[in-house]
Design a protein around this nucleic acid. Sequence first.
DNA 1: CTAGAAGCGGCTACAGTGTC
DNA 2: GACACTGTAGCCGCTTCTAG
Length: 249
Amino acid sequence: MLEATFLHLPGATREIEQRLWEAGVLSWHDFLERYQSGTLPFPVRPEWFSLIQQSITHLAKGNVRFFAHLLPPSEHWRLYGPFRSQAVCLDIETTGLTAKDRVTVVGLYHNDRYEAFVDGINLEQLPDTLRCFPILITFNGSDFDIPFLRRVFPHLLLPPVHLDVQALLKRLGIRGSQKVIEERLGFVRKEEVRGMTGVDAVVLWEAYLRGEQRALHRLLEYNREDVSKLKDLMDYAYRELCRQLGWGW
DNA sequence: CTAGAAGCGGCTACAGTGTC
DNA sequence: GACACTGTAGCCGCTTCTAG
């Protein structure tokens, strides 16, 4: 329901948006009609009219970047609704937690497709692939995944929209690690990777370096599960945040 | 482990509005 | 035009918390 968003208009506050909704202005088309008939609940800046017209066009064209610049970052999650097909989930595995540790695997999940980037094989292709997506989804990524990737790729160009599912769930009062939250919400992991943790990922990587191909296979299975469940969590967070705004009309 | 981003509470500054 | 009031934005410092 991005079409019900007015927060991207310069000078618009949450209260203004709320008052528009309460007055029955529930979409951009409502806004244009009511503006022209002079029946908006309060006077608005004239430039809002043209910005709303542009919003309709850019939504139809799938132009995420237009909205990314106008919407406050805390409300970027609203872009997930209409633009989810342009979103990519990301999760990394490393050799540990400290600054001197290395990235071993980066998993991307996009439109039900999993793609892995492995150190020593194809990791260097990650930046070019990542550049294709305007929306990045992570779990605690701003704290962990992104700083790690920046150490490997100092000039990494990130998508204009970054949705941190951990922060979104926290807003909904749901806190904890990804696995704890998954369990709480009833998401079930595949049998073969159930119970595995990040520490196992480190051990598997070391086994792979010793020549065990099966260890890498298993590590990728684990990473795939992490990153695909991340998408499920994002779907959940989006639904609940919409519900919280009363977007069900 | 432990770095560091985000949330949060509390505070100030200020723009916008209303009143006289 | 001067002033007071209100709500918001911006900022600071503190706390919280997860990642392999």
